[in-house]
Design a protein around this nucleic acid. Sequence first.
DNA 1: CAGCGCATGTAAGTGGTTACATGATTCA
DNA 2: TGAATCATGTAACCACTTACATGCGCTG
Lengths: 178, 178
Amino acid sequence: MSLPHAILTALLEKPSSGLELTRRFDRSIGYFWSATHQQIYRELGRLEQAGHIRALPAPVPVRGQRKEYEVLPAGRAELTTWVAGQEDPKPLRAALLLRMRAAAMVGTTGLRAELARHLALHQDQLDEYLLIETRDFPAARRETEPDRLRHLVLRGGIDMERFWVEWLTSALSELGTE
Amino acid sequence: MSLPHAILTALLEKPSSGLELTRRFDRSIGYFWSATHQQIYRELGRLEQAGHIRALPAPVPVRGQRKEYEVLPAGRAELTTWVAGQEDPKPLRAALLLRMRAAAMVGTTGLRAELARHLALHQDQLDEYLLIETRDFPAARRETEPDRLRHLVLRGGIDMERFWVEWLTSALSELGTE
DNA sequence: CAGCGCATGTAAGTGGTTACATGATTCA
DNA sequence: TGAATCATGTAACCACTTACATGCGCTG
C-alpha cells in the first residue's frame, strides 16, 4: 500500500497533473518507487474518491483535458500517519542472482554477457545519481532537515548502485574470461 | 517469469516434494527469490503439465499424500536456455526510502524507531548469512565452479545486507536523537 | 478415536504490467 | 485539415498474498 503515499508525497512537493506525476515518477520518485501512468491515474481516482486529494477547479471536466491535483488536509494527515507506521523489509528479489545459482547447475553459458550488461546499466545509473547529487545537493543545500532527508534517500540509491557495481565487478573477475 | 526457474534449479539440486521445496525456499533460495507454498504448488502443477518435471511414481496418487518431483531433460533444457537469457534489473522498491522522502514533507515523527527496527532486522540477516558462509563455504569448498558460483550468490546477499546496515546506521546518526 | 502436525491444495483479492482507446491541442 | 503529441483513461492479464479447506498419519 505504498503507491498512494508516494503520490501524496509527490503532490505535497508540488501539485501536478497525472502526466506530470508520471514524468516525476520516471525521474526522482521512481528511483525507489516506480509506477506507470495507468497505475497513477487509477490511484488518483481512488485518492480523490477518498477525499485525500482534489482536482483544482477546471472549467469543464472532459476526457483528455488536463487535470491538476492538490493534497487536502485529510491526505496530509493520512501521510503523516503512514510515515509513523511499520512495514517489514521485503526479501530481495534478484533474478540475476537466481540465474547465477541456476548456472551452478546447468553451466554458465551466456551468463558472463548478462553480468557485463547489468554492470554497464548499474554504472550508468550510478553516474546519473552522482550527477543529481552534485546538482541538487551541493554542500550548501544540506542544511535544512527536508533537504538532509532527501539527500539521505538519494545516498541510499547511490550506495545501492555502488553495491551492484562492486558485486558485478567481482563476480566477473571471479568467473574469468573462460 | 522467474519462479518456475527457481523451482527447476532447486529440484536439480535435489528432488523434493512441495513442502520440502517450501522449506528450502524459506532457507536458501528464498534469500533472493522468495515464494509461498501456494505459489510453489501451483507452479509445480504447471511445470508437470509442461513436461518439465514429473512426480516420482507413487503407489496411489491421493490428496494429502506426499509427492516427490524430479526434473526431466526438457526442464533442464528450459533452464539452460533461461540462464543465457536477458532481463533488465527491476528498479528498486523500498518503502522505507519512500517513508523518508514523505517525512521530508510531513515531519519525521515515528521514523527513527522504524529505521532502528530495520537496522536490527538487517543486522540479524547479515549475521545469519555470515554464519552460513563459514558453515557452507570454508576456503576448502571454494574450488569447484558450482561452489564458487553459489558462494558468489551468497556474497551478493551478504553485501546487500551490509549496504542496508551501513545506510541505516548513517541515516540514524544523521537524524540525531532529537 | 480425538487431536495434532504434515502435506497438498482451492478461492478471493490486490498490485502491477501490457495493450489498447479516446479526446484535446498544436503545428506544418 | 491531417498528423503528431499531449493527456486521460479502460480492459485483460499475471504474479503474489491471505485465508481457508481437505486428507493422511502418528501419538496419547
